[in-house]
Design a binder for these strands. Sequence first.
DNA 1: AAGGTGGGCAACCGCAATAGT
DNA 2: AACTATTGCGGTTGCCCACCT
Length: 262
Amino acid sequence: MVKATLVDKNGLRKGAWSKEEDDKLRVYVQKYGHWNWRQLPRFAGLSRCGKSCRLRWMNYLRPDVKRGNFSDEEDNLIIQMHEELGNKWSIIAGKLPGRTDNEIKNHWHTNLSKRVKQSQSVSSELVNKEQSSETSESEDSQAEKSETESVSVNTPSEPDRHPKIVENIPSPQEISCSELSSMNNDYVSGMNGAADSFSPMEIFQDSGFWNQPFIADNNDSQDGYHSLLFTEEVYMPSYPFNYDDDSMNWIQQMMQELQDSY
DNA sequence: AAGGTGGGCAACCGCAATAGT
DNA sequence: AACTATTGCGGTTGCCCACCT
């Protein structure tokens, strides 16, 4: 199920994620957001490339990721949207809260595509019957109707044939992982705006970031940076997505708490 | 019991899009 | 306008496990 972990020429780990790595990434992102995926692993104490961290977070560690079997409703929606959009997994994921594009893509390839193929073959059989049949017209139309009812959803078509879904999504309450990502980025960039262009790193520096009571875990540190493993006391499971005055207060409060605890 | 095979899924890779300079 | 950095997306790979022979 998981790829064996190995180390590439740059000393970066690849393959399966360990629980320790998951914990480091989860704690770091939940606390500071992902202000820069490329730089993040260094500060989180991870010997991973940023891309790998992003993927792990998006597909597995995000708190709102829904795991488990797909419901019939979800299956039908995926089939319907795939019929209309093609392999636009991220857009489809936007209609299925808690599901990731990767998960939907895998589910499609392993389950739904087969189901659609079966439906297609049933459909073509019906069409063949229809063409060769010498039965009455009324019977034909009935068969046509039943075909439409049973397999229309599963019949593939050109992606551009039904642009309506693209127009309709994303709805405000249904947010894809990529949109969530944007929200997080907005959170950070918004902080910049709200605080008159200070960078996340400046937050850390200005607030005594490097002196904060994190456990410096240099075991995995490849480049001399202090990795950050947070203590239970300062771990905070969530942060506000909107960066208004309350959020700035929250940040200031957080920083104050860190300084106090030091 | 042992080996083969295919399914399921996490993770990687390459490319395109976007943002920043 | 051109270049670079970063992110996001979709295709693909490869590992593990369950099932089959």
